[in-house]
């Protein structure tokens, strides 16, 4: 799915800290090395749901992932749920919480449990019913509901597959 062959658990792309205007985010950019790292994590743990965080920097209306931080699934039913605690493992904001939907019966977007119980501003759902990622869908929590964001791969502005 991703162009890069990078397969690392903790993938980091360095980027200088700059001050930017906090425009409302419309797009999440997941560069190929990060994307590959996420897919590797999901494939490794399939059929259990996998998840973690993407450390990000703002670029105008875009959030660009710079580091992949996989998190262990603490759920007692890991094939249906991904559960964790937001602690020191989570990178500081801005960040994106991602998790995989691994059942063919799952939706590619947010389920009701996702909408209610992901206490994060940004969420990424990777639909991977057979272990390989078929769809990337990003969301931002608004005051009353979640809004969908576009997921792009690096500077090409090419949208990652969305089902």
């Amino acid at each position: 799915m991703c162009d890069s062959l990078t397969k690392r658990k903790d993938c980091h792309i360095g980027s200088p800290k700059i001050i930017v205007v906090p425009w409302p985010i419309r797009v999440i950019v997941v560069p190929p090395p990060i994307c590959a790292s996420i897919e590797s994590h999901i494939t490794t743990h399939h059929p259990e749901e996998a998840g973690g965080f993407l450390d990000c920097v703002r670029r105008g209306r875009r959030l660009r992932a710079t580091r992949h931080v996989p998190i262990v699934n603490d759920s007692a039913t890991p094939e249906r749920r991904f559960e964790t605690t937001v602690d020191g493992r989570a990178p500081p904001p801005p960040r994106v919480f991602y998790h995989s939907h691994t059942s063919p019966r799952s939706v590619s977007g947010l389920t009701q449990i996702d909408e209610r119980s992901i206490p994060e501003t940004f969420a990424l759902v990777v639909f991977a019913p057979h272990g390989n990622a078929l769809s990337y869908r990003g969301f931002k929590r608004g005051l009353l509901n979640w809004q969908e964001l576009r997921i792009e791969a690096d500077q090409t502005a090419k949208q990652l597959p969305r089902l």
Partner: peptide, 11 residues
């Protein structure tokens, strides 16, 4: 600490 519960299937 905040807890996250996510899942591909609703109850």
């Amino acid at each position: 600490r905040r807890t996250i519960v996510a899942g591909g299937e609703d109850d």
